[in-house]
Structure formats: C-alpha cells, structure tokens
C-alpha cells in the first residue's frame, strides 16, 4: 500500500466510524458556511464605499492612506498628487493592465518590469473588501504578483462597484471561476512585530499603501 493509502486507512480506522456519504458531507459543509452570516463583524457604514474608505484609514490598517476620484482618467493626476506629497519622482512600475495603459501618463516614466528596489508601483485591484480594508489581486498576464510586494510605495486603484462587504462576499463573487495561481489579499503596508512585539512597517514588502477609489458618484476629487 502507498503512504497515501496508509494515511487514509489510518484516519478512518482511528475515527472508529464509517465514512459518511459525500452528499451528507457536502450538505453539512454548506450549512456551516451559511451560518457565518450570523457572526460577521458589522460594517461601519451601510454604504460600501464609505465603509471601505473609513476602514482603510482607520488605525486597524497599517500605513494606508486614501484618495477618491470620479473617473479612472483622473488616476494619473491622483498618482502625481501622491508622489508630490511624499517627495517622490515620477518613475514607477505600472501594472500591464489595458485600462491603465490607455490613460494619459504624460510626465511619468513608466516601466512594466518591476525591479528589486522599485520605489513605486501602481495597479488596479480586482476587488476590495470593506470589512477589513483589503485589496484583492488575481495574478495573470496583466497582473504580476511582485508588483504588490517589491515596491516601497504600493498604489492601488479600485472602482467603487468592485467594493464588497465581507470576506465571504469575495467567495460568492468568484464562485465557480477557475482560480488563478495567486489570489492576494492585501491589507495595508507590510509590517512586523517580531522584535519585542512592537509593530514596525516596511518589513519585506511595501512601507506605504495608498488607495485610490474611483467613484462616479463623486464630482470633486477629495483627499484624506
């Protein structure tokens, strides 16, 4: 017998009960998943955009700031604003996403390949989650994983209608879709509390995370 079969046999024998039919197992599992609705944390606002923005700038999310724009076309200006505030140049790694590439990046120095000591990366997230202030990225031809981890400043663009309420809503939104190599949930800048439990940001990943929410409901850009 293979090690695999040994382990499977050992499990069943140790449990001392016959295996349940798959249908019964999956019914139980579905019921358990449904129950989580009863204990999920409450959102600070009924409006998901407000809830997400509030969460992102709360003390609960490390090293994050937020800006809001009305149209995706305003993204380069928002990025320039951020760079100016932080005294950064305009050289950056841009996610090779067609929607971003189509924007007017005049004045910026863009590159698609990310370097080991990249200062800034700009990327569009697939989803955001209001409960935790999280950006969700799927890896793919237009979305390299390392854009989120190598730079010092991580700028994440998210469209208002892609903001979900709770973690489980992501599972529902992507149910049935073939998963990518990586799904990255990113909540704030990287940090560590490994030395005496004290939180320090910028451990191996970015030290700053800046969210840019594209909200058509907004007429004037506003920063916080």
């Amino acid at each position: 017998m293979s090690v695999r079969d040994d382990i499977l046999t050992a499990i069943r024998q140790s449990l001392g009960a016959p295996a349940k039919p798959p249908g019964a197992i999956s019914a139980e599992s579905t019921a358990l998943a449904a129950e989580s609705a009863q204990s999920r944390p409450e959102l600070p606002h009924a409006d998901l955009v407000e809830a997400f923005a509030a969460r992102l700038t709360s003390v609960k999310v490390v090293g994050a700031s937020v800006d809001r724009i009305a149209r995706i076309e305003d993204a380069p200006a928002a990025v320039a604003r951020y760079c100016k505030t932080h005294g950064l140049g305009l050289a950056l790694a841009l996610q090779p996403d067609p929607a971003l590439a189509a924007l007017d990046w005049n004045g910026f120095e863009l590159h698609a390949a990310i370097s080991g000591d990249e200062a800034i990366a700009v990327a569009k997230a697939r989803w955001a989650i209001a409960e935790t202030g999280t950006f969700v990225f799927h890896s793919g031809p237009a979305s390299p994983v390392l854009l989120s981890y190598l730079p010092m400043h991580h700028l994440c663009i998210i469209e208002a209608d892609r903001i979900l309420g709770h973690l489980e809503d992501y599972a529902i939104a992507e149910a049935g879709a073939a998963p990518p190599r990586n799904v990255n949930f990113i909540t704030g800048a990287s940090g560590t509390s490994d030395i005496e439990g004290r939180l320090v940001r910028g451990a191996h990943g970015p030290a700053f995370l800046h969210g840019i929410i594209v909200d058509p409901g907004l007429s004037e850009p506003k920063s916080s």
């Binding site: 999280t134 390299p144 190599r181 990255n184």
Partner: peptide, 15 residues
C-alpha cells in the same frame, strides 16, 4: 496584511 491563496504553478501568460 497578506493573506494569499496559492493554486498550482505559474499559468500560461503569467508574468
């Protein structure tokens, strides 16, 4: 800060 799901190796076209 980071919760990641790893599924299989690099897929076709992945960077």
């Amino acid at each position: 800060q980071y919760t990641t799901f790893h599924c299989g190796p690099k897929q076709q076209g992945d960077r």
